[in-house]
Computed example of a mutant assay.
Amino acid sequence: MVSENEKTPVRQLDARSLRGLAHPLRMQLLDALRFGGPATASQLAAKLGESSGATSYHLRQLAEYGFVEDAPEHGKGRERWWKAAYRGLRFDTDLLDDSDPAVRGAADMYLHEVATTQTRDLSTWLGNRGSWPEEWRHVGDMSSATLRLTPELTQELVEKMHALIDTYRDRAAAEDAPGAEQVRLHTHAFPIRTD
């Protein structure tokens, strides 16, 4: 039997689901489950430096909006284990122009939290890279390029970058492959003004 996660690996955010996700702790909880695997509210509280009451509440909210689900195969006794319902999220930029100001605010907050998380990920890597084995210390990338593009060419470039990344999903190393680690990729494409 194919799990829902395998059938629908990426969830398209809409106005309703965005309202349920656009909270910094909820986004951290979802990322912790997506990248760290199933966990209890207490385990997540310890990992994120929060109270188990707060993590329990926000996990229930995430479940109400379909982002997380029970993982009973991990539980013992009264422990409630949670897992991410989807491997990824897709943000529709039309949400930034929604007629409802609450949706626009949630969309803006979501994007700022994503940017904060990505900055924190990169900063953590820079601060800890010396603790990684030698073969991992020199494969990271912090490049940037400034190109003169039209909106259409920018969209084409973004789609091609995402298509390239997708080709590596099928080539991903097995969990137990020697030397394999989770590798985080961030892509950014945005216009800038120069004087």
Rank of each mutant, 00 (worst) to 15 (best):
W81G: 02
P178A: 01
V68A: 12
F35H: 09
D31F: 09
T116A: 14
E152D: 11
T146G: 10
Q43E: 12
D92K: 02
F190V: 06
G88S: 00
R129E: 09
S99Y: 13
S99C: 06
D92V: 00
A84Y: 09
L48T: 04
T187M: 10
A63W: 02
Y65K: 12
F91H: 07
R184N: 07
R80N: 08
Q118N: 14
A107H: 02
E6I: 05
W82T: 05
F67M: 06
P72M: 08
T154H: 03
L122P: 00
L153M: 14
K76F: 09
S56F: 12
D166G: 12
F91E: 12
A45K: 02
A172R: 12
L33N: 05
F91C: 09
F190I: 01
T154P: 00
D97Y: 12
T116Q: 12
A85M: 11
R19A: 13
F35S: 06
T154S: 13
V114K: 08
D141Y: 07
P101I: 03
W125M: 05
P9C: 05
F91S: 09
H188K: 11
E175S: 14
R104A: 01
D108T: 13
Y65G: 10
S51C: 04
V114H: 10
P151D: 06
D70F: 09
R11Y: 11
V103K: 02
F67A: 07
A39W: 07
Q61K: 15
L62R: 05
R104I: 02
G88C: 00
K47R: 14
A22R: 03
A32P: 01
L62Q: 09
R193K: 05
Y86L: 02
P38R: 07
E135Q: 07
F35E: 13
S17A: 14
A63M: 04
P151R: 01
T154M: 06
E156L: 13
A174F: 13
Y110K: 04
E4Y: 10
A177S: 15
R19Y: 04
A177I: 05
Y168V: 09
S143G: 10
G75I: 01
T117D: 07
A41E: 15
R148E: 14
A115K: 10
E135P: 01
L89I: 13
A22N: 04
M1A: 14
K7W: 07
A172E: 15
T119S: 10
E175K: 10
M109V: 02
L149C: 03
I192H: 10
F91G: 08
A115Y: 09
S123R: 13
A189H: 11
S51R: 10
L29A: 03
W132Y: 14
S99D: 14
R137E: 08
G140L: 07
P38V: 01
G66Y: 09
Y86R: 08
E50V: 00
D170I: 12
S144V: 10
